[in-house]
Design a protein around this nucleic acid. Sequence first.
DNA 1: CATCGCGTAGATACCGCTATCTGCGATGCT
DNA 2: AGCATCGCAGATAGCGGTATCTACGCGATG
Lengths: 350, 350
Amino acid sequence: MPRRSEPGKRPTLADVAERAGVSAMTVSRVIAGNYPVAPPTRSKVLRAMRDLDYVVNAHARALAGATTKTVALVLDDATGPFFAFIARGVEQQAASEGRLCLLCTTHGDPERELAVVELLREQRAEAVILVGGAQDTDTYTERMAYFARALDKSGSRLVLCGRPSPGPDVPATVVEYDNEGGAYAMTAYLLANGHRKIAYVGREPGLSTTDERVRGYRRAHADHGVAVDEALIRPGTFTRESGAAVTEALWEERTDATAVFAATDMVAAGVLKALRGRGVRVPEDVSVVGFDDIPLASDLTPALTTVHVPHEQLGREAVRLALHRGPEIEDRVVLGTHIVVRDSAAPLRP
Amino acid sequence: MPRRSEPGKRPTLADVAERAGVSAMTVSRVIAGNYPVAPPTRSKVLRAMRDLDYVVNAHARALAGATTKTVALVLDDATGPFFAFIARGVEQQAASEGRLCLLCTTHGDPERELAVVELLREQRAEAVILVGGAQDTDTYTERMAYFARALDKSGSRLVLCGRPSPGPDVPATVVEYDNEGGAYAMTAYLLANGHRKIAYVGREPGLSTTDERVRGYRRAHADHGVAVDEALIRPGTFTRESGAAVTEALWEERTDATAVFAATDMVAAGVLKALRGRGVRVPEDVSVVGFDDIPLASDLTPALTTVHVPHEQLGREAVRLALHRGPEIEDRVVLGTHIVVRDSAAPLRP
DNA sequence: CATCGCGTAGATACCGCTATCTGCGATGCT
DNA sequence: AGCATCGCAGATAGCGGTATCTACGCGATG
């Protein structure tokens, strides 16, 4: 007895072929549609497929053919609007390119990150997209270079999204956004509004994004001929609590700052809270601005003037670039940022 | 010349075997560790694997063996804290069970949902987890029953997470949370605080979650011997805008409500905004409560008293239940909800 | 001393699909 | 009419693993 479609087992190409009275190859061709099949044959096959409720086996296909039609997204944590929006961009673009999206999280654990990359090598994902700020150290660079090469050997492309590039000669694609430009524009906006004592709250040491933003902050000062008061650049982490604590400490020390540039919107939320607690009015007494433009920004009172980061587009580009590569196509892209004016910043009042 | 590990091609079991001077089966056994292999042989093999930087091919393994070690998560949209937290739970549990997590979004489009389920059938994911509120109609039930059976035939388990059950005899697992209980507890809390005119804002018609919450709202009234003023139950969608608009309309009509039970925290945000706009103080003049306990809730001013939904645990349970099934194991679970008291509700002032 | 059993390692047969080559009747061209 | 060509379908050979059955060396056993 030949191999039959026993009940309970999922039908295979061969089962469909038998039912349609053709060979398995013909069925494969009808599905792929990349080879001429006579219309009557085609419809017989389609009929059989429907009758059997046939579904191709993606794994068999991936094994026989070349491509897995899968991209992988690796992030610290899926909650948090920053990541969520990038994830949405990635997923959307992946879907529109007919790809499935694998999601992994590392919770900032390097060991887990390594394990995840290893797992994704097994999966032969077409692209592995690493998202999120990172310490820009030698260790980091080496690590990414290793990942890039390891993934490359396994046939996938490493994409660094919003992370520093590991340098040339590394088979990776980089999608960034203009941290410096955004910080420059925002600082310039405050300066143009008469502010001269602008505190920068939440410089997380060693983090690439921070460094770039501070660079923009400095350059704007320089271009406006205003000296930077180094004591106004305050370190801190990217949390609401840190924003509040740093603001408290600053105001305890001095109260001459007329504007606060928070490293992120989340930090800005903390700043606002601390200022409110001290009875400082925003924006009448002090202007406060942020960076990221997450939904929270427009929910704060007052609505936060901030730098818009195109998170979703970042995700889309990551997928697009990884999938369509070629000699003519750049493997590094920097997306623009721009300021969004809301209610938390106002001209300096004499 | 026998098949060699040509440079540029990923090494296979055979390559490792050749280098170690053993057969492919032996290598497979070393990796699987489910069969005795003599220690010297084992180390030769491990050595060869390291030298070649061998990585198994997950697709070949899935094809030959039975299991794909993959669970899939389908949601409307990855942004939005509600989904994000469920996603986190799913991803974490999946990871801890050694599974990878596929992420798909539908944007509420039924056609896309169908396509996604079809795609996941191809992937032979062990579990397909559908998340999010749904219209509890006959169409929905039929649809889910169809999905359940289709996926079952393809060897995956459908999990409905926070969605109504499609009824018995359908091969699906259901993970819900206690909407009615939460609404009951919250309403009882308000009643106990002296409130008698409690508006329910944001009853989205036909949505299962809504119906259950309103049921809890009614039952609490009944148990406290308070008649429900039907005119205080106001329809609306689960958005901030709707919350604000509905509140405006209600206050335009009458101002005797002393408390507002918003269908979700997001709606509550709108309610708060509208009340603030009218100069109504919360909680001094009117108490406002929500449902969900998303991070936003504690960020609002005043911090929102709300019903906590264990989103993350919901995700974890979905994976756990789908993966470990058996005669002794329930395929339907209802997680508890409880109220979280913050600052937006206060005892009625005479 | 023949036999048995045990511990290992190899051989072989798929899993379900696609790439490629072959086969063959119907056309087209001269 | 003769032969190359074309359109379509089948046969075959992997892709890279795992299950299963067989083979073999060696010490223990009767």
